[in-house]
Write a protein that binds this DNA or RNA. Sequence first.
DNA 1: TATGAATGAGAATTCATTCAT
DNA 2: TATGAATGAATTCTCATTCAT
Lengths: 219, 219, 219, 219
Amino acid sequence: MVNKEPAKRRAAEPRPRDADRSQRDILDAARDEFALHGLGGARMDRIAGRAAVNKRLIYYYFEGKERLFLAVLERVYEDIRNAEQQLELTQVEPTEAIRRLIAFTWNYSLEHPELQTLLNSENLHRARHLKQSTKISAMHSPLLHTLADVLERGRKSGVFRAGVDPMQLYISIAALSYFYIGNNHTLSTIFDRPLLGTKAKVERLSHMTDVVLGYLVRE
Amino acid sequence: MVNKEPAKRRAAEPRPRDADRSQRDILDAARDEFALHGLGGARMDRIAGRAAVNKRLIYYYFEGKERLFLAVLERVYEDIRNAEQQLELTQVEPTEAIRRLIAFTWNYSLEHPELQTLLNSENLHRARHLKQSTKISAMHSPLLHTLADVLERGRKSGVFRAGVDPMQLYISIAALSYFYIGNNHTLSTIFDRPLLGTKAKVERLSHMTDVVLGYLVRE
Amino acid sequence: MVNKEPAKRRAAEPRPRDADRSQRDILDAARDEFALHGLGGARMDRIAGRAAVNKRLIYYYFEGKERLFLAVLERVYEDIRNAEQQLELTQVEPTEAIRRLIAFTWNYSLEHPELQTLLNSENLHRARHLKQSTKISAMHSPLLHTLADVLERGRKSGVFRAGVDPMQLYISIAALSYFYIGNNHTLSTIFDRPLLGTKAKVERLSHMTDVVLGYLVRE
Amino acid sequence: MVNKEPAKRRAAEPRPRDADRSQRDILDAARDEFALHGLGGARMDRIAGRAAVNKRLIYYYFEGKERLFLAVLERVYEDIRNAEQQLELTQVEPTEAIRRLIAFTWNYSLEHPELQTLLNSENLHRARHLKQSTKISAMHSPLLHTLADVLERGRKSGVFRAGVDPMQLYISIAALSYFYIGNNHTLSTIFDRPLLGTKAKVERLSHMTDVVLGYLVRE
DNA sequence: TATGAATGAGAATTCATTCAT
DNA sequence: TATGAATGAATTCTCATTCAT
């Protein structure tokens, strides 16, 4: 009669012992939970639930919530930089390269709305976690080099304007996509207009491309 | 604008009986606390402390944390829209109007870093609070009308390109500033370069102006 | 913009100054609130609201919650004993007197479900409040005398059995009605049968009368 | 049955890891606390203290106060129905069966004054908790069947009157005992006479038996 | 590697009551 | 007689984390 399961948990036979699998599951679950609720709002309980893992195991693999968050951040940055590598921007014409980068950024932000949410959390904490990471900065220099190359080629061929800072440009491209996506809910509300409808999405991509190329391309 | 942590003049003398003053103090304190820690991370205790008010009084005037948060959001939007009104964009030449708007947005985002933080929280909650506000949408239409007027004047005089959606443009201008400011910590970290140094700030404003005018102005 | 009314209250012009009226309103409101939520669950705020009186006024007239509760109890006992007086049991035949008393008790319990609730609260507190009242015990002796008279007349005429303790009988009559009413919700639930439907009420009164007269009447 | 207030053996040594034991302790403590103070007046802190359990553990096993209360109610009903089963009313003569039931009810109400208190709380809440229980109604039908059997046997042998509704009778028997016990404090006060003295108890049982058998038995 | 049991330090919120006018 | 403003002391519940196996 007594002997009831602790309030929530749904039974569950013990998990097959696969260290790698467990860690990956935890990381995936954590990423989703952090994205959905922010660092502060995330619940270790829910992460364990999502990952179908005993809560204690999270502490076994990752030190605690903060370390787990950092692990998620590193993983997420790795993912996007890897994806960017696939673009092969150095192999194509400058204008086409820029178009690709914009389209990629836009689509990635659409498919990975969690990214901005995670970064918002991290910014709220003044990048406290990222600053502890050693590999982060190194992950980003290739991107800047690639972009510098594109800009330089464009300038040399007389298509692009001169004096463009690759980082400024990269931030601007990211801004145009991520700000729109990340503030989607408030923007839709204050402007009383759906920003992620099919038509709206097409319009936004077109607008962003116009803005960036209108700026870069001479004449 | 956001007061740095301490404040907390834990008054020993009783509070003067001034309802308006109390409410304003609470609202100010709440704005700072929410900005600094997000909705979830904000502590009612700290808000009371900052406002030098008995915690109970917050519940007396505002229903609870969520309603307080909404009150802060409304107030913050009101502030920025009011400030924008002062720009008198309809009174000046289109190009000058756009320059002013960009510069204003940039400076406002610098002086009010709390704004983006608050909105991030609200987006995390899918605009749950704002959606309950009745006055919000009405607060924003003047802005769009003003911008539409500027764009139309520019187009008529042949200076601006045609077919520019005022909302898209407004979002883009906001994006260029707010994304940069709001992600300042992570961006500075991954690019290993201070983004808010004196020189960096000048460069950013210049870059944003170039981008937007490069896009708008026909040859 | 600030200057909002404390969370709940609906405006209200100041109350016309009528001490008696105010006290009665408070007492009525308190009786209902205590009946609905018990002593512990009652809220001074709600009592003030129900009475359309400033909360502070309650403290002005009644010392606080406990004293207010006692005032309610005294009032409620007074009401029922007064009503019983109207029955004029000494004026009618013994059997008829008993019938009247049962019917009265039943109807009173139906019309005043608050009574049992209030008494439950008081019993929970071991009659702490009532024990402070001086007039209570005096209020009840007439009832017992009346009942003793009825029983004695019945016995003398050979209709009623001898040796019946008036208090025991009174308690039993009250029990049959009040227990049924007071436990209506749980009883209806465990027996899965509505106990206060029109038909059910008729049946109960009939049953109770049968029980009591079956016991009292010889042969 | 209800332990008098103190208990609270605030263990310094850590609790043995025995889930069943912990849950039972909590349930016992909760029953006592709820009985003593009602649902609203009960304090989770005190329950934890009584059970010598960390407060948090209560939430671990039971969802919160309300669920805990329901668990207590179910347990308490289970106990009494189990005890009634032991009476074997179907095995004895009808008159004897009724005597047994009355005596049992009386003694149970004396030994378990918490029962009525708990039910008062539940009725105050309009059986909100019980209505969520699935097993409750099923627990009570055996009782009614047993009683129907007794009445029928009595009627057939000509000893009992016909047309007696088992539920009505059961409620009346319960009423005579539980009302007396449950209102003991107020009744003793208003009648200024101790109702639970040794002699008084004997008299009450005798009175109740007379009432019920006086009603049931023909001639 | 994996898990159920247990906990201490907060967190928001509630409430009767008092202050000042 | 009447009221709005203000408060201290609880109270329920939450949460990351640790213990013991």
